[in-house]
Measured scan of single mutants.
Amino acid sequence: TYTFKVDNKDQAKKAAKWAKKLGLSFQIEKHGDTFKITVQ
């Protein structure tokens, strides 16, 4: 499981695209202005 934080929606979208490309499941949680992405 890999967790990282991004500062904006664009970065969150890029991370989601990357995870989908690799066939991984992911969750994006919004914490105020940051997004926490968990990829597994």
Rank of each mutant, 00 (worst) to 15 (best):
residue 1 T to I: 13
residue 1 T to R: 11
residue 1 T to K: 12
residue 1 T to V: 12
residue 1 T to L: 09
residue 1 T to M: 11
residue 1 T to F: 11
residue 1 T to G: 12
residue 2 Y to V: 09
residue 2 Y to C: 15
residue 2 Y to W: 14
residue 2 Y to S: 03
residue 2 Y to E: 03
residue 2 Y to I: 10
residue 2 Y to F: 12
residue 3 T to H: 09
residue 3 T to C: 14
residue 3 T to W: 14
residue 3 T to I: 13
residue 3 T to M: 06
residue 3 T to S: 11
residue 3 T to K: 04
residue 4 F to E: 02
residue 4 F to C: 15
residue 4 F to A: 02
residue 4 F to V: 04
residue 4 F to H: 02
residue 4 F to T: 02
residue 5 K to H: 15
residue 5 K to Y: 15
residue 5 K to M: 15
residue 5 K to F: 15
residue 5 K to V: 15
residue 5 K to D: 12
residue 5 K to G: 07
residue 5 K to T: 15
residue 5 K to N: 14
residue 5 K to E: 15
residue 6 V to F: 10
residue 6 V to N: 01
residue 6 V to I: 07
residue 6 V to L: 09
residue 6 V to S: 03
residue 6 V to Q: 01
residue 6 V to A: 04
residue 7 D to M: 12
residue 7 D to W: 14
residue 7 D to V: 10
residue 7 D to G: 12
residue 7 D to K: 14
residue 7 D to T: 12
residue 7 D to N: 13
residue 7 D to S: 13
residue 7 D to Y: 14
residue 7 D to P: 10
residue 7 D to H: 13
residue 8 N to G: 10
residue 8 N to Q: 05
residue 8 N to P: 02
residue 8 N to L: 05
residue 8 N to S: 13
residue 8 N to F: 04
residue 8 N to W: 04
residue 8 N to R: 05
residue 8 N to E: 03
residue 8 N to M: 03
residue 9 K to H: 10
residue 9 K to Q: 10
residue 9 K to V: 13
residue 9 K to Y: 14
residue 9 K to S: 08
residue 9 K to M: 14
residue 9 K to N: 06
residue 9 K to W: 15
residue 10 D to E: 14
residue 10 D to R: 13
residue 10 D to G: 12
residue 10 D to K: 13
residue 10 D to T: 13
residue 10 D to S: 13
residue 10 D to N: 13
residue 10 D to C: 14
residue 11 Q to W: 06
residue 11 Q to T: 06
residue 11 Q to N: 05
residue 11 Q to C: 15
residue 11 Q to K: 10
residue 11 Q to D: 11
residue 11 Q to M: 11
residue 11 Q to F: 06
residue 12 A to L: 12
residue 12 A to E: 01
residue 12 A to D: 00
residue 12 A to P: 01
residue 12 A to Y: 04
residue 12 A to N: 01
residue 13 K to E: 11
residue 13 K to H: 08
residue 13 K to M: 12
residue 13 K to P: 00
residue 13 K to C: 15
residue 13 K to Q: 11
residue 13 K to L: 11
residue 13 K to V: 10
residue 13 K to S: 08
residue 14 K to H: 08
residue 14 K to N: 07
residue 14 K to D: 05
residue 14 K to T: 07
residue 14 K to V: 09
residue 14 K to S: 07
residue 14 K to W: 11
residue 14 K to P: 01
residue 14 K to Y: 08
residue 14 K to F: 08
residue 14 K to G: 04
residue 14 K to I: 09
residue 14 K to E: 07
residue 15 A to H: 04
residue 15 A to D: 01
residue 15 A to L: 14
residue 15 A to Q: 02
residue 15 A to E: 02
residue 15 A to C: 15
residue 15 A to V: 15
residue 15 A to S: 03
residue 15 A to T: 06
residue 15 A to R: 04
residue 15 A to F: 15
residue 16 A to G: 06
residue 16 A to Y: 10
residue 16 A to W: 08
residue 16 A to F: 09
residue 16 A to S: 07
residue 16 A to I: 14
residue 16 A to Q: 09
residue 17 K to L: 10
residue 17 K to G: 06
residue 17 K to Q: 12
residue 17 K to V: 09
residue 17 K to E: 11
residue 17 K to H: 09
residue 17 K to Y: 10
residue 17 K to I: 12
residue 18 W to K: 04
residue 18 W to F: 05
residue 18 W to H: 04
residue 18 W to Y: 05
residue 18 W to R: 04
residue 18 W to E: 02
residue 18 W to P: 00
residue 18 W to V: 04
residue 19 A to R: 01
residue 19 A to N: 01
residue 19 A to V: 05
residue 19 A to E: 01
residue 19 A to K: 00
residue 19 A to Y: 11
residue 19 A to L: 15
residue 19 A to M: 14
residue 20 K to Q: 12
residue 20 K to C: 13
residue 20 K to S: 08
residue 20 K to I: 09
residue 20 K to T: 11
residue 20 K to D: 05
residue 20 K to E: 09
residue 20 K to A: 10
residue 21 K to T: 08
residue 21 K to Q: 09
residue 21 K to Y: 08
residue 21 K to V: 07
residue 21 K to R: 12
residue 21 K to W: 09
residue 21 K to F: 07
residue 21 K to N: 09
residue 21 K to I: 08
residue 21 K to E: 08
residue 22 L to P: 00
residue 22 L to D: 01
residue 22 L to K: 10
residue 22 L to T: 04
residue 22 L to A: 08
residue 22 L to R: 10
residue 22 L to N: 10
residue 22 L to W: 08
residue 22 L to I: 06
residue 22 L to Y: 10
residue 22 L to V: 06
residue 22 L to H: 13
residue 22 L to E: 05
residue 22 L to C: 15
residue 23 G to S: 04
residue 23 G to I: 02
residue 23 G to D: 02
residue 23 G to R: 04
residue 23 G to E: 03
residue 23 G to A: 03
residue 23 G to Y: 02
residue 23 G to T: 02
residue 23 G to K: 05
residue 23 G to Q: 04
residue 23 G to C: 06
residue 23 G to H: 06
residue 24 L to A: 03
residue 24 L to C: 04
residue 24 L to T: 01
residue 24 L to M: 08
residue 24 L to Q: 02
residue 24 L to Y: 10
residue 24 L to V: 04
residue 25 S to A: 11
residue 25 S to Y: 08
residue 25 S to W: 10
residue 25 S to I: 12
residue 25 S to Q: 11
residue 25 S to G: 06
residue 25 S to F: 09
residue 25 S to H: 10
residue 25 S to E: 09
residue 26 F to S: 03
residue 26 F to V: 14
residue 26 F to W: 06
residue 26 F to P: 02
residue 26 F to R: 00
residue 26 F to K: 00
residue 26 F to E: 00
residue 26 F to H: 03
residue 26 F to Y: 09
residue 26 F to L: 10
residue 27 Q to S: 13
residue 27 Q to I: 13
residue 27 Q to H: 12
residue 27 Q to D: 06
residue 27 Q to Y: 12
residue 27 Q to E: 10
residue 27 Q to F: 13
residue 27 Q to C: 14
residue 27 Q to M: 12
residue 27 Q to N: 09
residue 27 Q to T: 14
residue 28 I to Y: 03
residue 28 I to L: 06
residue 28 I to D: 00
residue 28 I to T: 02
residue 28 I to N: 01
residue 28 I to Q: 02
residue 29 E to W: 06
residue 29 E to V: 12
residue 29 E to M: 07
residue 29 E to F: 06
residue 29 E to T: 11
residue 29 E to S: 08
residue 29 E to G: 03
residue 29 E to C: 12
residue 29 E to H: 06
residue 29 E to Y: 06
residue 30 K to A: 10
residue 30 K to E: 08
residue 30 K to Q: 12
residue 30 K to H: 06
residue 30 K to I: 08
residue 30 K to G: 05
residue 30 K to Y: 06
residue 31 H to T: 14
residue 31 H to R: 08
residue 31 H to I: 15
residue 31 H to M: 14
residue 31 H to Y: 12
residue 31 H to F: 13
residue 31 H to L: 13
residue 31 H to N: 11
residue 31 H to C: 15
residue 31 H to V: 14
residue 31 H to G: 04
residue 32 G to P: 02
residue 32 G to L: 05
residue 32 G to E: 07
residue 32 G to T: 02
residue 32 G to M: 05
residue 32 G to S: 03
residue 32 G to V: 03
residue 32 G to N: 07
residue 32 G to I: 03
residue 32 G to Y: 04
residue 33 D to M: 07
residue 33 D to A: 08
residue 33 D to R: 06
residue 33 D to F: 07
residue 33 D to H: 06
residue 33 D to E: 10
residue 33 D to N: 11
residue 33 D to I: 06
residue 33 D to V: 07
residue 33 D to Q: 07
residue 33 D to K: 09
residue 33 D to T: 10
residue 34 T to E: 12
residue 34 T to A: 14
residue 34 T to G: 15
residue 34 T to P: 00
residue 34 T to Y: 15
residue 34 T to I: 14
residue 34 T to V: 14
residue 34 T to F: 14
residue 34 T to Q: 14
residue 34 T to W: 14
residue 34 T to M: 13
residue 35 F to E: 00
residue 35 F to Q: 01
residue 35 F to D: 00
residue 35 F to L: 04
residue 35 F to I: 06
residue 35 F to Y: 14
residue 35 F to V: 03
residue 35 F to W: 14
residue 35 F to T: 02
residue 35 F to P: 00
residue 36 K to M: 14
residue 36 K to F: 15
residue 36 K to S: 12
residue 36 K to L: 15
residue 36 K to D: 05
residue 36 K to I: 15
residue 36 K to H: 13
residue 36 K to A: 09
residue 36 K to W: 15
residue 36 K to R: 12
residue 37 I to Y: 01
residue 37 I to K: 00
residue 37 I to S: 00
residue 37 I to Q: 00
residue 37 I to D: 00
residue 37 I to M: 05
residue 37 I to P: 00
residue 37 I to N: 00
residue 37 I to E: 00
residue 38 T to A: 03
residue 38 T to F: 05
residue 38 T to N: 03
residue 38 T to L: 05
residue 38 T to Q: 05
residue 38 T to D: 02
residue 38 T to P: 00
residue 38 T to E: 03
residue 38 T to K: 05
residue 38 T to Y: 05
residue 39 V to S: 01
residue 39 V to T: 03
residue 39 V to N: 00
residue 39 V to L: 08
residue 39 V to M: 06
residue 39 V to Q: 00
residue 39 V to W: 04
residue 39 V to E: 00
residue 39 V to D: 00
residue 39 V to K: 00
residue 40 Q to F: 15
residue 40 Q to Y: 14
residue 40 Q to C: 13
residue 40 Q to V: 11
residue 40 Q to E: 08
residue 40 Q to M: 13
residue 40 Q to A: 12
residue 40 Q to I: 12
residue 40 Q to W: 15
residue 40 Q to G: 12
residue 40 Q to D: 07
residue 40 Q to K: 11
residue 40 Q to H: 12
